[in-house]
């Protein structure tokens, strides 16, 4: 029972965005939060790291109320990698990763040798050691994402929330980022768009439909043609990944196309 959401509801500007979502992410599990745009994936994640206020429900971490803990303590347990917004101030990649030490240091504490080691270590683990002096903005999408993961590593939290970590990345970096996150061995709750990647990487998936939890379980049980059709309103055909046996929903065209048709 590592991370547990109990009957979570979130209201934004008077609209109920998430209602009564309960889910559990076990220790060391990589859980996917799936659902169409606007189904409440980000809203749930932001409620866990206190950007959104809960209307009802609880978030438990190892059985303790996470939201009742001081914010700093919570940040030592739960790290976040979100889509980065445009930033006006140019930190270097090194400084960006050093931000992961913020919840561990008091106001006037200097960065200690320990902090520098942790940061250097984190950057090396994500293969970003050579980027340390680069301005964060000058990095490519994949590099940025790796640096943000390094920040989460430097934060030394044992839980990681990912908000669409593979958006805007090409296929190589999508796989690289998710492999990297899997290799960290922490408990992960990741909002994901890409059902195929989710099926490849997640131990369990939680499928949201307009703020409700539609169903959850192993990807192969949840991602059926019927459930994707119902939740996403998209017609798919399910195939099996030849490497792993993971289900892979493939989109279908609305018009029937004969495969043999010459192009």
């Amino acid at each position: 029972m590592s991370l547990e959401l109990q009957d979570l509801s979130v209201e934004l500007d008077g609209r109920l965005i998430v209602s009564g979502v309960s889910l559990t992410v076990a220790d060391g599990e990589f859980a996917g939060l799936l659902g169409p745009n606007g189904s409440g994936k980000s809203t749930i994640l932001k409620a866990i790291y206190r950007v959104n206020k809960l209307t009802a429900g609880r978030v438990l971490l190892d059985g303790h109320d996470l939201l009742a803990q001081p914010l700093r303590n919570a940040a030592r347990r739960v790290a976040v990698v979100a889509q980065e917004s445009a930033v006006e101030f140019a930190l270097t990649a090194w400084e960006m990763v050093m931000l992961g030490r913020v919840p561990h240091r008091r106001s006037f504490d200097r960065d200690r040798g320990e902090d520098r080691e942790i940061v250097a270590d984190a950057m090396q683990r994500v293969g970003a050691a050579g980027l340390a002096n680069r301005s964060f903005h000058s990095l490519s999408g994949g590099e940025k994402q790796r640096v943000l993961i390094a920040r989460a590593i430097a934060q030394q939290a044992d839980h990681l929330l990912l908000d669409e970590p593979t958006n805007h990345l090409d296929v190589r970096y999508q796989v690289e980022v998710l492999e990297l996150v899997r290799s960290l061995g922490v408990t992960v709750l990741a909002a994901l768009h890409d059902l195929n990647l989710a099926s490849l990487f997640c131990d369990s998936v939680h499928l949201l439909a307009s703020g409700h939890l539609d169903q959850h379980g192993a990807p192969n049980d949840v991602l059926t043609a019927a459930s994707v059709e119902r939740v996403y309103g998209a017609a798919v055909v399910i195939v099996t990944h030849p490497d792993t046996g993971a289900v892979q929903p493939l989109p279908r065209r609305r018009q029937t196309v004969t495969p043999e048709r010459p192009i």
Binding site: R50, V51, E84, V87, F89, L91, L99, Q155, L161
Partner: peptide
Amino acid sequence: MGAEVATSL
């Protein structure tokens, strides 16, 4: 780096 990032830290 933004309010949400700061909160998460």
